[in-house]
């Protein structure tokens, strides 16, 4: 077991390195850098000036070396200009050249500087992630129990009327992406045109204090899309278990129906959905980006969009690292949890 987790972690780190490198390359392409030079320096810079600016700011090193520096594995670049001023990756106004560390990268905790939001990337991501965490917490709290209950109830008696109606609901919910359900929900519950006005159409105020009024719509919007999928998976797993021989064995030894569902079926039926729920988290990330944009809730997803659309390279890199790590960690948890839940694999 320990060996297995170790192997998985090694693969995970390898994957993370590959992915961050790809993101690094895609965000540090020549056109991006030129655009960066013009926004940081002067919009009317000549091509030559751009080239010098890039040269002076360490953007002309080979890609792999820059990636190493960003990661903190290689020493940061240093340049000395004509006047003898030393500039470098790890040197800034607060940290003069003589005290600057040799390496400063993600591994040292230095995630860089956001050119758009004008702050340390690590600080931005910290606060934004906190806000998104709250959102995710409520989403999970609403989505997972609802989805599991729906799935189990539907799968318990395949083909019954309850099954038919719950299945239709879950199909409808998987067919409604966040930007559609969000629009519909706002139109119905928040727009002045209809007049219900139960909730607020934006969640900006929720960043200061969550209320039922400002937080319901974003949470429901994300939960709705994921719920149908988990419910369908649970239902499929449940129907399969309910037709298994051992359920017939239980029935024919006189176990009552509620006990068959609770004692015999549930544990076996929830193994598969567990994996699905864990793998759903990366999908929730999409939902988060859409919903935070739609409801103007300035969390992690909103930051990612800002970074990507404003060519904020280091912030986007930071966001990508977080996103990739979240995905990989959930994959790891899902694998380990699957083994843990399944005695057939756990004890062998």
């Amino acid at each position: 077991m320990g060996l297995f987790i170790l192997r998985r972690i090694v693969i995970m780190i390898l994957t993370a390195l590959c992915l961050t490198f790809i993101v690094f390359v895609l965000t540090n392409l020549q056109p991006n850098l030129e655009k960066l030079a013009k926004t940081q320096g002067n919009v009317r810079m000549t091509d030559e000036q751009v080239a010098t600016w890039l040269e002076m700011n360490g953007y002309t090193d080979p890609m792999l070396s820059r990636y190493g520096q960003w990661l903190g594995l290689l020493p940061g670049w240093t340049r000395e200009d004509a006047e003898g001023n030393v500039t470098g990756r790890c040197i800034s106004r607060d940290v003069p050249a003589d005290v600057a560390p040799e390496r400063c990268g993600v591994l040292q905790g230095d995630w860089g500087w956001s050119t758009v939001l004008r702050d340390e990337v690590s600080a931005i991501i910290g606060t934004r992630l906190g806000l998104t965490g709250i959102l995710m917490f409520w989403v999970m709290l609403l989505m997972v129990p609802m989805a599991l209950i729906m799935g189990v109830l539907a799968g318990m008696r395949e083909g019954s009327r309850l099954d038919r109606s719950l299945s239709t609901v879950s199909i409808a919910s998987t067919a409604t992406p966040e930007y559609v359900s969000g629009v519909i929900l706002i139109a119905v519950f928040a727009s002045s045109a209809v007049g219900l006005k139960w909730f607020k159409g934006t969640a900006t105020s929720a960043m200061d204090g969550i209320t039922f009024e400002n937080f319901t719509l974003p949470v429901v919007t994300i939960a709705l899309y994921g719920m149908g999928y988990i419910a369908r998976m649970t239902r499929a797993s449940m129907t399969e278990v309910m037709t298994a021989q051992y359920i017939r064995t239980a029935r024919l030894k006189g176990v009552s129906f509620p006990n068959i569902v609770l004692k015999h079926a549930l544990r076996n039926a929830l193994i598969a959905p567990f994996t699905v729920i864990m793998l759903q988290i990366p999908w929730l990330l999409n939902g988060v980006v859409i919903v935070e944009t739609l409801f103007n809730y300035k969390g992690f997803g909103w930051t990612l969009v800002q970074a990507a659309s404003n060519n904020d390279i280091e912030l986007l890199l930071g966001c990508s690292v977080v996103a990739v790590v979240v995905v990989l960690v959930t994959q790891l948890i899902s694998d380990v949890g699957y083994i843990f839940l399944n005695p057939r694999i756990r004890i062998s």
Partner: peptide
């Protein structure tokens, strides 16, 4: 009481 063909399938794997 009843005994079936597939012993593996007629026992609950998680119990």
């Amino acid at each position: 009481a009843m005994i079936y063909q597939e012993p593996m399938a007629s026992l609950n794997p998680a119990m």
